[in-house]
Amino acid sequence: MAEAVYQQVGLSRNESADHVEAILSEISDRLVAGETVKISSFGSLQVRQKTGRIGRNPKTGEEVPINPRRVLVFRASHVLKDKINKGNGGA
């Protein structure tokens, strides 16, 4: 990824890597704060709250409590979905 940025933008490899890192960490911070992050023509990342429930270990049949937790959901944009199916579609 840093290599692509290096080639496209013409910054040093080190600086490119730092920027990729900084961008991902900014996105992470927003998500942790509960914000939705939308990138046009790519998709959006959203945090969803899951309630606790009783799960079951499928191997042993044992009941295990699953605590309430927050999960990240990615919704791809139509542009991305179309691109992926054009890329693989011919195969």
Binding site: M1, A4, V9, I23, L80, I84, K86
Partner: peptide, 21 residues
């Protein structure tokens, strides 16, 4: 302009990779 290009490159790169499978 460069920052824009960095951000765009990251997501284009991910998209291209996914399109290749």
């Amino acid at each position: 302009r460069d920052v824009e290009r960095i951000v765009t490159t990251i997501f284009d790169e991910i998209s291209d990779a996914l399109a290749r499978g």
